[in-house]
Write a protein that binds this DNA or RNA. Sequence first.
RNA 1: GGGCAAUUAGCUCAGCUGGUUAGAGCGCACGGUUCACAUCCGUGAGGUCACAGGUUCGAGUCCUGUAUUGCCCACCA
Length: 854
Amino acid sequence: MKKQFELDKAYDPAKYEGRIYKQWEQSGAFQPSSNPKAPAYTILMPPPNANDDLHLGHTLSTTIEDILIRYARMNGKAALFLPGSDHAGFETQVVFERKLNAKGKSRFDFSREELYRQIWDYVQANKSSMEDQQRHIGASADWTRETFTLDPHVIRRAYETFQKLYDDGLLYRGQRIVNYCTFHGTSFSDLEVTYQEDAGHLWHLRYPVEGSEEAIEVATTRPETMLGDTAVAVHPDDDHYQHLVGRMVRLPITNRLIPVVADTAVDPAFGTGAVKVTPAHDPTDFEIGERHNLPHIQIIGTDGKITVEAPAEFRGQTVAAARAAVVKALETADALIKTEDYTHSVGHCYKCGTVIEPLVIDQWLVRMKPLAADAMRAIEDGQVRIVPESKTRVLATWLENIRDWNISRQIVWGIRIPAFFSEDGDIVIDIHEQSDTLIRHGKTYRRDSDTFDTWFSSGQWPLATLKFPSPDSQRFYPTSVMETGADIIFFWVARMIMLGLYVTGEVPFRTVYLHGLVLDPHGKKMSKSKGNVIAPQPLIEKYGADAMRLGLIANRTAGMNQGFEEKRVEGYRNFCNKLWNVARFTLAQLPDDYSPTRPEPKTPADAWMLARVNDTVREVTKAIDDYRFSEAGQLIYSLLWDDFADWYIEASKVEQNPNILYHTLSTILTILHPMAPFVTEAIWEAMPAKDGQLIAAPWPQAVKPSSELLRHAAEFDALKAVVQAVRTITAEEQLAKPTILTTDTTLAKSSELITRLARAAELKHAEQGSGLYLSTTTPAWIAATPEQVGARKHRLEQQRAEKQAYLESLAARLANEAYVKSAPAQVVQDTRDRREETLMLLSKLNEQLAALEH
RNA sequence: GGGCAAUUAGCUCAGCUGGUUAGAGCGCACGGUUCACAUCCGUGAGGUCACAGGUUCGAGUCCUGUAUUGCCCACCA
């Protein structure tokens, strides 16, 4: 009885993917092997923000991670792919507030607890849909270890590191100027501010020098800040102002007296060479203020309005209104010299675009220099390898110029900072206290209302997910590969390295693989505001997860941004279907009670197929080891389609060898599995004599092929070329004059197979051949007209003559060396390994030449 | 202002340490009702590898310079 194959005519992904994923998960295949001898291989999923659907970037990221994990698993590693999701502090609060606004509410309508609870519920709902999407892609992640960035152990990790930084003196409470968004009501790190060129004005102001007829002219783009000026600064070497340093000027409008100070931060060549100094509202001025002990007068509040520190007439006004009012007042006071148009770069909130207000607030800051120094050493020592390598330098440069890190955020959604303040300014860190107040030594302390910058906790992701210190961290830390977007190298990768080293003394991962952005089809960055975001889910439904995975990694290299092409996904859908049909054919050929045995090549085609499979296994293995996924995919594509389907299966229609068919299909399924897990597993199930799941099958090993096999295989290469050549001959006159020019005897031996192949292709005149020429210098046969053959021969002879002339000239210099005399002849005779031979000879000649010259 | 990357076929891109005639997918042209597959089969056209020098027996690949594009960082009173 013929075995029944229930494979449909075309592969329908929807019919298999859900069931197969469930089957993998339930079988425990996603959990790392408990075999203590299996070396650990770990990838932590960069936790996607739990506030939105996944986009193509996530799909790419998860695909690459999953390829590496499946590959490692098949290579016998204890492979752990640990998934998670990110509460994404500020980002999520912004998304949520937008939803509130849509309902006509705002965050101020709720208490802190209520707001937190609502965001929590929203995130939980989103989180589970996001996990489903990761499953649809085929992520072979260990969901039993899934981590959310607000899990208790993640919070504990952040707290313990906070405490350690505090104890080590690396954390300080700083009156520091920070980037403040008055719309979102929080401060930002430098990385979260985007600068853009804005058209503005430059106002020239006159500050009269006290007790003199002189006045100093200063220029500013922000005249309203003059209300908070506490000095005028000039360069110490600037001759124009030497005599004024140390004197006082009278600030217009407020009539306060402020000093003239000398500071190198001033560029004497810019404008008048004198600047007004507002320490409370400008980063540079703040630093000048520190150096000269200038007071801070905060005239702009966190609400973006003028404070009580300013004269009464301006209080409560917005910055924009105050600017106009101050300019008017200056004019009245005859302190405005002139106004000119001026375009300059202004910091904006990366989220809402509001102009960033530099404000002095109490924040927690981390001293980064010592942490960065250790990280730099680790990178220099090669403890962390970055793919692509070029990003290593980018990272090192950033670390060199690192600035202290403001980790306080004035938002609700996040991890509360475990610091407590008393009325009189005492600080207590207590990472165990749950409540908002604390009593110590009879004093009452109130908890810091701020939360951590989300990167402070996610910067400890490797420690948090593996619950350092724990058996898991013992086994899986340092992790193997950190795969993430090139755009968050500073935000995340750098901080993980620094914090990982700081807490454990070891780098958190051995390799960083950075992928580029997935751009839209026109090469533009995808963004919600532009409305050019492509959702992965509909594409997965249309083409299948495997096609999606293959289509995304194809044509892509590490660190490079690249456009998304749906056509490519479609192409890989076709590829999956091709595989499916190759499997249908193969399985239909196998005898009823087939059980595979060692594949023995009987024909040149068999030998060739075995050699091709073996070569491809070796090349694919190397490509994945080198993180060249696109190339690995292309190699398998070509093996399946160009070699197996187009040649071997065609030849099989004449004469077949079930073992070779089976072996080839089985190997292709195995090496393709990391990239296209579903279709390969689905076919694997239909294969006779396969017990376990493909996900747990071992990775094939390439062997060194015997010379016997290679010679045998080369015959088929020649045959292929003949058939191909014959196919091209369609013109009647070419068929009328049949000749085969050949210098290769293998062809004659194999004429029988040529005839059979040709017949399979219904090329009845093939046995006569026609206008063919076999080059002895290359394995390629070419069909050509006599003119083309002639031209070709001429070219080859020229090339040979050139090479020979060179070698003869070399040899002539070594005329008395016997070996060298015979060398040129050898070179031209050997046509197969010309390159190796030539190189070898050249190096020998060079050695001898060097020896003679001494 | 500083740094990084890119420039290869009509389009999107590969091309690892320099080495036979520079590749793929898509698109295009021509021809196919081959019983695994029209999500298919066969054939073909199309490239002075941005430009100019240099190193080498040999350069898409290494070096120098130029041009164009993109990204990142810093500063701007």
